[in-house]
């Protein structure tokens, strides 16, 4: 289980990015972090990954506090971030250095097959399209068989068609080992299509505004009324989260004198 306990992040310049975030994600659960820009969703993800340290509080995987990148936590970034001097196969096996060569090859071949890129092992990253590169990036994170996979707006740079096909690929990959998925997105449709729960964050400082369960059977029909209803619920919460901060903000900065004039 992924546990996030009273996590705060204050940047050196005084900006409070996150305020006391607490969240439990069950093993194998898919959670989407949704929110407007600047609500700290990427910051939260980077702290779960161990790339950044929280100011207070902590994130833990199965009770083990995460201080630095953890072997059982994988991450996929917004950009594919493939190493351009390695072939596709070498990129995928980048985190498999500790395994024997034939096991590496076996996992790479299987991974390529699963994302429809069989035979692409010897290509250079420059020869891939954006969607292909992102698929390689996802399997690079998954071949190490992490318990949790974090995804930071992984499909936001892709066109709508490619995005949908990659969401399906992601779900298919998730089915094999059922890792915990934490997906940061600003796309409500994506959240409803993939997640068991949508966590709506509100900005300044980043907090959890709503925790919406999405109890739809998989595979999900994007055109069904239930899907539309779930989307509507998340959108409504998102609207609320964006309109909320002003009143909240005013309350926080209110001086005693100003408070009296109300």
């Amino acid at each position: 289980m992924l546990t996030i306990d009273a996590l705060c992040k204050i940047y050196p310049n005084g900006t409070q990015a996150l305020e006391k975030i607490s969240l439990n994600v069950d093993a194998g659960e898919i959670v989407a972090l949704v929110g407007g820009s600047g609500c700290g969703k990427t910051t939260l993800l980077r702290m779960i990954s161990g790339l950044e340290a929280p100011t207070r509080g902590h994130a833990a995987l199965d009770g083990e506090v995460i201080h630095a990148p953890h072997p059982a936590v994988g991450i996929v970034f917004q950009e594919a971030r493939l190493l351009p001097w390695l072939t596709v196969a070498q990129n995928i096996s980048f985190g498999l250095d500790h395994l024997p060569k034939d096991e590496q090859e076996r996992r790479v071949d299987e991974a390529l097959l699963r994302v429809g890129l069989a035979g692409y092992g010897n290509r250079w990253p420059r020869e891939l399209s954006g969607g292909q590169a992102q698929r390689v990036s996802i399997v690079r994170a998954l071949v190490t068989q992490p318990k949790a996979l974090l995804l930071d707006e992984p499909f936001s740079a892709l066109d709508a068609l490619t995005r949908e096909s990659l969401q399906d690929h992601l779900l298919a990959l998730w089915e094999t080992h059922r890792p915990t998925l934490v997906l940061v997105t600003h796309d409500v449709e994506e959240a409803v299509a993939l997640a068991d729960r949508a966590i709506v964050l509100q900005p300044k400082p980043g907090r959890i505004f709503a925790d919406i369960p999405i109890d739809l059977p998989r595979p999900r029909d994007r055109l069904s009324p239930e899907f539309a209803e779930a989307k509507r619920l998340v959108l409504k919460a998102l609207d609320g989260s964006i309109n909320q901060p002003h009143s909240h903000q005013a309350g926080r900065v209110q001086s005693p004198a100003a408070g009296g004039s109300f």
Binding site: L51, A68, F77, R81, W85, F94
Partner: peptide
């Protein structure tokens, strides 16, 4: 930085980071 972060995510030692990421880059 983004490329170096990939090395960090895979927990490369300082030396491995130099050898596998910085030098080829």
């Amino acid at each position: 930085r983004k490329i170096v972060e990939v090395g960090r995510v895979f927990r490369l030692s300082r030396l491995a980071l130099v050898r596998r990421v910085l030098l080829p880059a």
